[in-house]
Design a protein around this nucleic acid. Sequence first.
DNA 1: ATGTTACTTTGAAAAGC
DNA 2: GCTTTAAAAAGTAACAT
Lengths: 190, 209
Amino acid sequence: MVDMSKVKLRIENIVASVDLFTQLDLEKVIEICPNSKYNPEEFPGIICRFDEPKVALLVFSSGKLVVTGAKSVEDIERAVSKLVQMLSKIGTKFQRAPQIDIQNMVFSGDIGMEFNLDAVALVLPNCEYEPEQFPGVIYRVKEPRAVILLFSSGKIVCSGAKSEHDAWEAVRKLLRELEKYGLIEEEEEF
Amino acid sequence: RLRKWQSRLRVSDAAERNLAFALSELDRIASQLKLPKHVEEEAARLYREAVRRGLIRGRSIESVIAACVYAACRLLKIPRTLDEIADIARVDKKEIGRSFRFIARNLNLTPKKLFVKPTDYVNKFADELGLSEKVRRRAIELLEEAYNRGLTSGKSPAGLVAAALYIASLLEGEKRTQREVAEVARVTEVTVRNRYKELVEKLGLKITL
DNA sequence: ATGTTACTTTGAAAAGC
DNA sequence: GCTTTAAAAAGTAACAT
C-alpha cells in the first residue's frame, strides 16, 4: 500500500458552473453589483466580485454563471444565494432552485519528500518536464481525470479534479507510480 | 462525382502548398541557425509525421515548424535555445513552446529522448565565449557536483550552465562577465547571479576576485 | 545590485467571435 | 482557438529604486 500519511492537500480554488434557469438583463444587473465590470465587447459576461464569501462571479444573460475563487462548496452555495437575493430585489423571478455543478478543484499540497525531477522524468511514463519553461513535472492522471504538477521540493498542485476525493485518488495514483519506478526511496544523494 | 474529384484535388493542392510553405520556412530557419543537414531532415520528418497525425489543427504552421526544429535539435543533441529559434521564427516563444510540448506529447518524444546533457550546452556557450578546455572541464565538474547535491532540479539548464561557466572562468583566470555569459545562454544577469550565489554558497567555493 | 510585481504551467465553465 | 475568472507551486523576467 502506498504511504499517504505524510501527504497533505489543501483546497485553493473551486470553479463551478451554475444555472439560474432565468434570463437576465445584464444592463440592470450591473446596477446592483457594487464592484463589477461589464464590457460586452471583450467578454459577454459581467465580472462581479464578492468579499463575503470571497469569490468572483461571471454572470451571463442566459442566467448561467461561473463562480471561481471559492475555497469550499459552501462558499459557492452562499455566493449563489447572495446573488439570487440581490436579483430578487430587482424583480427577477425564480422558477426553481439554481443548479450548481463543480467543474474544477485546485489543490496545493506536499508529498513530504524531495525529488530529483530529472530522475523522475526519465522513468515516469506519460510525464512532461521542461525545466527551461516550467520548474515542475507535469503528470496527467486518466482516472480520475486530473493533472498534478510535481516540484523538486515535493510540493504539488493538483487541478482538474471534481471532488476532494478524486484529488486524493489522483495523488495516490501518482505515488503508486513513483513507488513502482523506485522514486520514493530517499534516493537523495549527498 | 466531378465535384468530389475537384474537391480532392483542391485538398491535395492545399496540403501541398502548406507543406511547401512549411519546408521553405524550415529551410529559412535551418540555414539561419546554421543547422547540420541531418537536423533539418529530422525536423522535416517530424513535421510530416505531425501533419499525418493531424497535430497541426489549431496551430500555425510556423509555430509547429519552429517546434519541430527545436525538437530535432534536442533529439540529435545539437544545443540550441528556444530563444534562438524564436528570434528568427515569426511566432513568439510562448507559442513555439506550446506547439513543442504538444508534438512532443503526441509523437512520444519523451523527456529521456529529448534530454541534452549540460555538457553539450557548456561547449556551445564556451565556443561563443572563446573559453578554453580547462574552463569547460571545470564548469562540468561544478555542474556534476551541483547535480549530486540536488541543486539543479527544476532550474533552468541554461542558467545553471551559464553560472558554472562564469565561476569556472573566474577560477581558471579567463574571466567573462555575468553579462557576457548571460547573453550567450539567453538568460538574464539576475538568473546567472542567483545560480552563481547558490553554487558558491552550497558548494563551498571560495572565489577571491 | 535589490526589491516588487508579473508572467510561465495545470484545470473547467460561461457566450460569442 | 480566443476572450475572462481564481489560486497554488518554483523559477525566471521586467522594471523600479
